[in-house]
Amino acid sequence: MTIVDPVVEPGPELSREQVARYSRHLLLPDVGVLGQRRLRNARVLVIGAGGLGSPVLLYLASAGVGTLGIVEFDDVDASNLQRQVIHGEADIGRPKSVSARESIRAVDSTIEVRLHQVRLEPRNAVNLFRQYDLVVDGTDNFATRYLVNDAAAVAGIPYVWGSIYRFDGQVSVFWDAAPGGLGVDYRDLYPDPPAPGTVPSCSEAGVLGVLCGVVGSIMATEAVKLVTGMGDTLLGRLLVYDARTMTFRTVTLRRDPGRVRVSEVEEDYEVSCGVASPLPSVDSVDGDLDPTSLRALLDGDTPVALIDVRDPVEWDIVHLDGATLMPLPTVLAGDAVASLPTDRPVVLYCKTGVRSAEALAVLRAAGIADVHHLRGGLEAWARDVDPTVPTY
């Protein structure tokens, strides 16, 4: 078992109104009046007000956390509403942080909500974290996850981490400075980031909407446990959830004896995680096409082989007329080279241009010269050429 002392001191005595509001907590021996006073005195920073941040923020607000910080600079999009339950139709186009604050205040108007409408970066992360007792990380990219991990280690505070992918979720608690030699962090689970392009985002791979509620609720539970000191935390354990089979399992995590303790944040996490590496960013290669240029090419007299490198389920949603489906794994395996025509230009496309850029690099390395890709993918095509093409 991994039981740790509460990370927050009790706040003032509860008012009569607060006793009534939190009575179901007060009846729990592991929470009680003292635990609720800790919750009211707690300062919790939530990174992201999206799929995971939505249930985390709503449940922490309902639990009575006195101060909630939100790091979020994005706006609400219609595609968010399938899983980001803190936002509604009327919020489309509005800042997520503002929408989230209004929803929190609708739950409890006495909670202090601090908005940090900035991109989390090495220059601001540590000082920001030091203003809070703990952090909850619901981000969806490896660069930010490593930054959160290192900033929390430097600030000396614990954080709850969660991740979702299609039907699967993971949750753990990381605290490099945990007492009793219990400290583990994200780098003990993932010493090195995955290769660029090997882990698609939710916008490319999809995600079951209700999965966010399950994983986010578990993350909120771990935050409450850290604040109050109740129960057995996930520090030193990884919880893995499979929504398809409705199974949970836990994996023991141990500190890597060879890992050097983090003493400062890096200068550029996007570079170290491969986000800014040259390989996937081949938009600068001569011959790449923007949507307008591709439209002109398709309207010309020269035949064009239009290749869709997305997954079959995406093809079923929308595809360009005259295109041929050739999923990226087929290209990466080398199976596509022999089937590509050599008597006409080949133009690859995907949703955003990331996968088609990767396929382009592979095919050019294989010696195919007259191959190009649609810069910006179908999203750019819908924006610049054909607004009737649905985005997803």
Rank of each mutant, 00 (worst) to 15 (best):
R244L: 15
D308N: 07
V318W: 11
C273Y: 02
D232Y: 03
W315R: 00
L306P: 05
I317K: 13
V304R: 00
P278G: 09
E270L: 11
K225P: 03
L297Y: 00
G258F: 01
P257D: 04
V240N: 05
S272N: 09
P291K: 05
L325G: 02
D283C: 10
R310K: 08
T302I: 13
G287F: 03
I307P: 03
S272V: 15
D308T: 08
V313C: 08
A296L: 13
D290A: 12
L253W: 05
P312Q: 00
I307S: 04
G231E: 00
V275Q: 12
V240S: 13
L234I: 00
C273N: 12
T247G: 11
D316R: 10
L235H: 08
V309W: 00
E266F: 09
G274H: 06
E270R: 15
T233Q: 06
V262A: 07
D286S: 11
T252Y: 03
E270C: 12
T245N: 14
E314D: 04
G322Y: 02
G300K: 02
T247H: 12
D290F: 08
L234T: 00
M326C: 14
L320G: 05
G231K: 03
S293H: 05
L253Q: 10
R244P: 04
L325I: 03
T302H: 07
V227Y: 00
D268V: 09
V318Q: 13
R261M: 09
V282H: 13
W315T: 01
D256T: 13
V271Y: 11
T250R: 12
L235M: 14
A305I: 01
V318N: 10
R261T: 15
G231H: 03
P280S: 07
S281F: 07
R244T: 15
D268A: 13
R244A: 12
R255V: 07
V309P: 00
T245Y: 12
D256R: 14
E264T: 15
R259P: 01
M246R: 09
K225C: 08
V271G: 06
A305Y: 01
P257S: 11
G274E: 02
V260M: 11
A243M: 12
M246P: 06
V282C: 13
T324N: 02
R295E: 15
L325Y: 02
L253T: 08
A243Q: 05
E266H: 07
G287A: 05
R259Q: 10
S277V: 06
L306V: 03
S263D: 10
S277W: 14
D286M: 11
L294A: 02
K225S: 05
A296E: 14
D311I: 00
T252I: 08
Y269G: 07
